[in-house]
Structures are given as C-alpha cells and as structure tokens.
Design a protein around this nucleic acid. Structure first.
Lengths: 257, 257
DNA sequence: TCTGTTAATTGATCTGGATCAATTCTGGCC
DNA sequence: GGCCAGAATTGATCCAGATCAATTAACAGA
C-alpha cells in the first residue's frame, strides 16, 4: 500500500546559512574545520525550510545535485518496490546527511519526506566536491560520514530477531539524541509505529507488542511516542551496542592477541 | 558457533602494482583516470598475495590504515556478535573495494577472509586521501564507490521474503560477473551455502531448498557451486533488479510527472 | 581404491512473527 | 463537551522459515 502522495517536492526560499553559529556544527559537515574553512562551506550552503510533515525533499529518480543536512525536525527516506510496498530505509535527525545514496548514479535512489516540521541545509554536490579538494578536513569528514553509514547498515543486517532489531533501533536513537546534547534515556520518537516496523522489517503489531513486552520486563517505559530507557545494559545485551563514534572496539571483549 | 581461527593475518611480499595494465581498471579506483593520474595511483598502491582460502586480510578491531581492492579470487567480510554468531556482511569480487567501513573510526569494523586464493591491492588510506585532492577523478570515484555501497545495502534491506533475497543475491552476482566481462548467466559461486545463508539471514537448509525450488520452476539450473540463470525476467520480478551502474530509474516504471 | 571429512540435500516438526480482526486510545475540530 | 479519523493496542489464527535429524554427495589424502 503506497503512502498518500501528499504534495510535490518542496521548493522554498533559499537563505544563506551560517555554519559557524549552527548548534549542529560539531556533528555535521563542519566537524573539524577551522573558522576560515567553515566560512568557505557556508558560502556554498543554502538553508531551506520549513518543510511540513508529509512534504518531500526529493523523490526517487530525481536527478541528484545536492546533499541535505538536517537542521531541525526529522526526515525519513523510503522506496516503493515493484509491488507497491513502502520500505523505510532510514530516519534522519539533526546534524545528519540525506541523499548520499544518489551520488553514484546521479539520481536520487529513494524518496525523502519530512516526519515533523523540518529545516535542512542544501549542499550542492559539485561545489562540495570542489571545496573538499581545497579543504582536507572537509574531505575527511565526508568520507567519515559515508563510512559510518556503511557501518550502520551492516549493523542493522546483523540483528536477526525482532527484539534484537527493536533494541538496536532504540539504542541507535538514544545515541543520536545524546550526540545532539539531549538526554539520552528520554527519547521522543519522531515517527509512527508503522515506519519503525517498515524500517525493521516487522509488522506494526509486532512493534507494538515488543514495546509492551520491553515495558513489562522493565527495559523501558513507553507512552505513545515517548520512550524512557530504564535498563540500558539489558537493552545493549539484546541489540548490540555499536558506538559509531567510538574506537571500533566497543562490541568486542578486550582482545588478547 | 564461531568459525575456526585459521591463521593470523596475512603478511606477504609487497609488490608494485600497475593499474594501467590491470584488467580491472575499468571497475576499480582507476575508473575515469587518464594515464598520468593512473600512474600516480600506482605509486601508492601495493600488490599483495596470494591469500589462501581461510586466511584473513584483516580483523575486526585492527587499526585501519588501508583499503583493499580485490584483483583475483573472492573475499567475504563478517562480524562475530556478542553471542558468538557469525554474520556475513558481504562478498567482494574482482575490482571491488574492501574496508570502507573502517574509515570513520580508524579501526576495521569487520573481519575480511579469503574464500578462494585471492590477490589484492593495498591502498594506504592517508595517501589515497592526499592523492584524491590532486586528482578530482579519483575523488569522484571514491565517492561513487562508497555511495554505491550505501545503495546496495539499502537494497538488501528492502527484500523481505527468502525467495526475494536469494533472487536479489543471484542477480547481484550476475551483474558483477558481467561487469568483469564474464558470462552473466553462468555464475560460479565462490562461497558455500552457509555463507550465502548467513548473508541473507536465512538457514542453510532454506537456501538449499530455495535453489531446488528455483530449479524446479525453471528459473535456474544449479549444480553445486555452478548456477546457470535460465529465466532472468522471472528472477528480476522476484528480487528487484537494482542496476547499480544504471541511471537510477531502472526500478520504476517510466514516471509521468 | 578406500576412507574420513565437510558440504549439501532432504524430511519432519516447531515457532516467531505475520496476518486478520476487533477494540481502545488520542488529538483535532465543530 | 461530542464526534471523527488515524494511531496504537490487543487477541486469535496461520504459515514461512528455523530447527532438529538423517542421508547423500564430493573430494582430499593414504
């Protein structure tokens, strides 16, 4: 069942953006840049918004010309398969990039739609490529972000059972909330159960039942979209903790070699 | 059940490599470079091999310092979860890169092991970063390859049922064989059923039964590791055809907008 | 050629999660 | 407040694929 076609792709006033004063500069492309280099980045970036819930930032098949960094709100990316079913590929919160999968083919490979009121920065890709040649720190950050995305999808692939997947999902959100300076154990889910289910390849009912079970077992307290993590270690035991900002050893016991 | 620890990480004679005479130059990092630039790439690349089946190229947790391009043979990457189960993340054939997921943390996030006798080119990452600033075509190719990896994992995530996943897997292999100039409908699987099963999150027995069913239905002819694709359209209908070298529109019917 | 070993197949059974089917909640709107 | 539509929960049943258990095939080494 394809989702309702809310509206066409958003097209809003383009405003200059100042990375230097952005609260997300430590998680986003500017990470590691000095003031001068950050200004060069600002010069190619445009702010866009607001995008209303249900409005699309881009659609599958559109020609690719920019990456988008989420400033506020949240987006999801999804595809529609040849049988008309929707598959949620991922969720994008403040400081995260959308559209990386479009680079190689020159066309966007998924749809990106706002879950809440959102604002984003558009980064024209050809100018970003050019600038990243001049600014090594920027080039390094782009590669890091893409590499992290590859790691993260490998992570999702290793979680087999339904409870592992939901636990891993909650941990991932928690970590991303913490990165943004929010309380890590108080999550407000920006998406409905249906989208969580689609992303984790589960039925909505299963997600609902798992939330109930996790609550019974004292792992979390759930009320609608609000989730409080009560027993982090137990959750981590279920869905492996993959700390994508760590040193790559967090998942293994100390090695003896 | 963790796999037997065959041996330590491989460490073999380092030989200069000539990308210009490499038959894989049109699929690998040199794609799109002119002769001069290709020579610059050669100057930082070392050839390594042979790596015997079961020998590791690197292990999870090792500090990351190089990407590897497969020249001959095939590798798999995998992780061991906190319950000791192996999860196969992917397979790497001639012309493909291994190790991209290690960039962001500075440590390899998975193990890489040879499935068959293999030779690889080691590309020291810091020198690659540096060179890609001077050689725009190289920078572009790295980003394309990483973007393609992100797309591919999204693809795997959208295939739900067991037959969709196996069909998608066969199509992906077929496409990669064709890229290397081999016959696209005659595949020799470089990996055992167990690894296919782990990669697709299925039981070995299920993979075996699916091969039998596909054969019954006339989709393929299977004999041990040799698979002949007999009915490509039917296979594509099952596992969506995602042509990662195409224009991004291959999965959608022509758009009317 | 036989023999041990691992890979693959095939069969029988079991179960986690999907599906179908009602309710119940919640927030927006009159 | 009362009413409505979509979101979420809860219950009953079903089935795809896992698991358990043999059996057969391929192959390396003696």
């Amino acid at each position: 069942m394809p989702p309702p076609d809310h509206s066409n792709v958003v097209s809003i006033t383009h405003l200059r953006q100042t990375c230097r004063s952005c609260s997300l500069r430590e998680l986003c492309l500017p990470l590691g840049l000095d003031n001068d280099d950050m200004q060069k980045l600002e010069d190619i970036v445009h702010s866009r918004g607001p995008i209303r819930p249900g409005e699309h930032l881009f659609r599958e098949g559109d020609s690719f010309h920019a990456l988008y960094a989420v400033k506020t709100g949240a987006l999801k990316t999804y595809t529609i398969d040849n049988q008309g079913r929707e598959h949620v590929l991922g969720f994008h919160l403040g400081g995260e990039l959308v559209g990386l999968d479009g680079i190689h083919s020159g066309h966007n490979r998924c749809n990106a739609v706002a879950l809440q009121n959102a604002t984003v920065c558009a980064v024209p890709f050809s100018r970003l490529e050019q600038l990243s040649r001049e600014v090594p720190g920027l080039q390094a950050q782009i590669l890091r972000v893409m590499s992290r995305e590859i790691s993260a999808s490998a992570q999702l692939a290793t979680e087999h059972s339904a409870d592992e997947r939901l636990a891993g999902f909650l941990l991932s959100l928690s970590r991303r909330f913490r990165r943004r300076g929010l309380v890590a154990n108080l999550i407000t889910l920006p998406m409905p159960r249906r989208d969580i289910a689609s992303h984790l390849r589960l039925a909505t009912e299963t997600v609902s039942r798992l939330f109930a079970r996790f609550q019974e077992e004292g792992l979390v307290a759930v009320r609608r979209r609000d989730v409080e993590i009560l027993d982090l270690p137990a959750l981590e035991k279920l869905g492996e903790a993959l700390d994508l900002d760590g040193d790559g050893r967090s998942r293994r016991s100390p090695q003896t070699r």
